[in-house]
Design a protein around this nucleic acid. Sequence first.
DNA 1: GAGGGCTTGTGAAATCATTCACAAACTATC
DNA 2: GATAGTTTGTGAATGATTTCACAAGCCCTC
Lengths: 211, 211
Amino acid sequence: MKHIAESTVRRLSLYLRFLEEFETQGQATISSGELALSGGTTSAQVRKDLSFFGSFGKRGLGYGVRDLIGSIREILGLHRSWSVVIIGAGKIGAALAQYRGFTQRGFNVVGVYDKDPSRIGVTLDDITVRADAELERDIQRLKPQIAVLCVPGDAAQALVDRVTKAGVKAVLNFAPAQIHVPKGVTLRAVNMATELEILAFGLSHPEERAS
Amino acid sequence: MKHIAESTVRRLSLYLRFLEEFETQGQATISSGELALSGGTTSAQVRKDLSFFGSFGKRGLGYGVRDLIGSIREILGLHRSWSVVIIGAGKIGAALAQYRGFTQRGFNVVGVYDKDPSRIGVTLDDITVRADAELERDIQRLKPQIAVLCVPGDAAQALVDRVTKAGVKAVLNFAPAQIHVPKGVTLRAVNMATELEILAFGLSHPEERAS
DNA sequence: GAGGGCTTGTGAAATCATTCACAAACTATC
DNA sequence: GATAGTTTGTGAATGATTTCACAAGCCCTC
Ligand SMILES: NC(=O)c1ccc[n+]([C@@H]2O[C@H](COP(=O)([O-])OP(=O)(O)OC[C@H]3O[C@@H](n4cnc5c(N)ncnc54)[C@H](O)[C@@H]3O)[C@@H](O)[C@H]2O)c1
Ligand SMILES: NC(=O)c1ccc[n+]([C@@H]2O[C@H](COP(=O)([O-])OP(=O)(O)OC[C@H]3O[C@@H](n4cnc5c(N)ncnc54)[C@H](O)[C@@H]3O)[C@@H](O)[C@H]2O)c1
């Protein structure tokens, strides 16, 4: 398959959200134009994004909402569930561990880890924080595919090394640190400072704001 | 000024982080190549990014670390401080309100708001949660430029309407909802579900992973 | 089953972003 | 102050993504 741009995957995730909304509202079919309107893009973009993966619509009619939901879920890899470990049970780690939006979409938190004795044993909803020393053994046993990193920046790289060595294949990093992963591991970073700085840039350059 | 790509602004924020690190290590000058290496990009990219805003280096020598920090801070609009209100004092809102990384970079949280009486009056570090009914009056008084939205998706649009009407010019949205802002307001969204779904896509299509 | 009215799927064109490649400019040394 | 050794700043080339535009396909009505 041709290489797929990240922007395409991001939009597919967005389309899926709107389609689910249209489905609960009982809409049976939808055109690329309607979908584009919800997502702030163009109908050609919607069709092009989908065309990388096949042909899902009916000319003259549009897309079956339920079918397209199924197809996009398949494309994104959401027809199965994924196991997630959260590393760092501090403020952000605890918030994520208790976030219902994860489980709702098929991402099951199978472990939360911390090194601070005062955090170990704490119960977050229905999961108990465990010692980071258990990480390797638990990863072997539970085979999580995804690790979410919520530790201070200077602890991040060492923990990524440990979890990727133990078999984790994707990392979502919240620590404000540039980290490196072995080939074959997918990495994404959510950097709050950068998001705010992009806003500050927009505020400082009103003449050329994107929005 | 020509239109600046978001990717450029994002990289400038990244460069700034590395430069600050190099400065604390006492390095006086740095070449585009060195900076590129830290940030996982190319020297040409670094120079091109900077060239949109002016000429900051010395040929044959590189960039003065301290000077370039100052220049990038100026470009991003960080030579001044910005005031932020956080709306929604739930799990994620509370974590953000207590996050030191905000203040460290010149983003001052001047208010945290919730509608739930059991949250109002709670103290997060040194700030007390206030009733959302106070929003308009406080925005008039404190003139925050940025609002960070940490409320459930179905409450998001109404609150954005309220804060932008009251004068807020930038919004960072954590709710999983597509929101609209008036012209002249900058909007960014952090969508955890999408981040995880991009990871799931990478896990499902190993042959064409980006990393 | 022919025709009108839509909407898809997709090459081609246009736009946008990155990389290349090199002249110009600086430092250091002799 | 001439020369060697660097590194910047930037047009031009390449590569990637988005938009355009239209033939092909489907539904519905007559
Ligand atoms: N709080 C926020 O709103 C926020 C926002 C964006 C980014 N971040 C980043 O997320 C990370 C966590 O932030 P936080 O506010 O939750 O901090 P925190 O101090 O509340 O939590 C960090 C946790 O990580 C644990 N930890 C440290 N080293 C560890 C190790 N080697 N193994 C296991 N656990 C370890 C600590 O014991 C602590 O419980 C930081 O890098 C921070 O910069 C936080
Ligand atoms: N918790 C997470 O890790 C996480 C991660 C990503 C995104 N989010 C999103 O962030 C938002 C908040 O999540 P949370 O986990 O903090 O939920 P939460 O329920 O803990 O907090 C939401 C808060 O918003 C308040 N609120 C609701 N309506 C309001 C209104 N009209 N005005 C003022 N306050 C109002 C509620 O009283 C509550 O305190 C949600 O949209 C969620 O999907 C959360």
